[in-house]
């Protein structure tokens, strides 16, 4: 009962809030949110919705290979609306499974980067001094390299350390770690900046007068007041992380062909693109573009909606 009332109260306040108003009044944002929701829903329901299980060799038939999309060619087959690749795998199903993997990798690496960045940023901003200097110099050095280069480096080091077979098994974790480690700097710098502003405010001093420990003050007082900017970076970085994963997979250092993400699909299609089988690479590419565009539009909107100066 109590939780129900609390939830409806929360709902009422959410409906009244500035953020909801700014969301409602922007058709572009509504479109972006709808597109994101649709892509995410379809991707995560792929085991139920997909017409085929494209990576189960038992269901594949080589004679179905390289079928063009139905609507564009008389050679099409209604079982494969977006055509098939050279192995006879259904492109539509591959895209659904691939999107799910891309989203998972993107979300997981954003979480890794965010967790690392928040912790290091809090430490750096609250403790200051040597800790701050060391963390920020590491961050500065890392900022001089493009994120993709850092991710390539980390991926390369891991490949050098373990066998190929083992690498294929843990490829997802390696790539999540590589992307996460290459994106933490932004979070750390943002959190550090906010913490340095907040820690000198009198409400933090009031908590210190009571004698709360620095850890409690950081978690209870400082952290909630820096979540706004962090959330915005996370949304914008989700698109970037998905693109980075796709780029790595396209270069062949990301996910293996046995568990293809959108990037892997684009690479596989790219190999046969010159022979005129364009659909294998174009449809995953279009999905990737749509997903990243929608997520980025949402991120831009959130940045403006949470910025009081733009209201």
């Amino acid at each position: 009962m109590a939780t129900g009332a609390a939830f409806s109260g929360w709902l009422h306040r959410a409906a009244d809030s500035d953020i909801w108003w700014s969301f409602k009044s922007s058709p572009m944002t509504i479109a972006a949110a709808t597109a994101t929701f649709l892509i995410v829903a379809v991707a995560f329901l792929s085991p139920v919705l997909a017409p085929h299980t494209p990576f189960d060799p038992a269901t594949l038939n080589l004679s179905d290979g390289l079928k063009p999309p139905v609507l564009l060619s008389a050679d099409g087959d209604w079982r494969f609306p977006l055509g098939t690749d050279d192995q006879g795998r259904d492109i539509l199903s591959s895209i659904m499974y691939g999107t799910r993997l891309s989203l998972l990798v993107g979300l997981a690496s954003v979480v890794v980067a965010m967790a690392l960045g928040i912790v290091l940023g809090l430490l750096s901003g609250y403790l200051g001094g040597t800790v701050d200097a060391v963390i920020m110099r590491v961050a500065d050095v890392q900022l001089t390299f493009p994120a993709i280069l850092v991710a390539l480096l980390i991926d390369g080091v891991v490949r050098g350390l373990i066998s190929v077979k083992r690498h294929d098994e843990i490829a997802v974790f390696v790539i999540v770690g590589a992307i996460g480690l290459s994106f933490w700097v932004q979070y750390a710098r943002t959190v550090r900046g906010s913490v340095m502003v907040e820690k000198n405010k009198e409400y933090v001093q009031a908590a210190r007068v009571i004698g709360l420990s620095p850890l409690l003050i950081m978690v209870r007082h400082v952290l909630p007041n820096v979540t706004g900017p962090v959330l915005v970076i996370a949304t914008i970085n989700l698109g970037l992380a998905i693109i980075t994963e796709a780029t790595l997979s396209f270069l062949g250092v990301g996910l293996p062909s046995t568990q293809p993400s959108l990037g892997t699909l684009i690479r596989l299609g790219n190999e046969v693109l010159q022979s005129g089988d364009w659909w294998i690479t174009v449809f995953p590419g279009a999905t990737l573009a749509a997903l990243v565009l929608a997520v980025n539009l949402l991120g831009d909107w959130l940045r403006d909606a949470l910025n009081p100066k733009l209201r």
Binding site: K201, E202, Y203, Q205, A206, V209, H221, P224, N225
Partner: peptide, 11 residues
């Protein structure tokens, strides 16, 4: 302690 700025002293 009671602080100077009532806009900064409450979380």
């Amino acid at each position: 302690m009671i602080f100077q700025d009532p806009y900064a002293s409450l979380n």
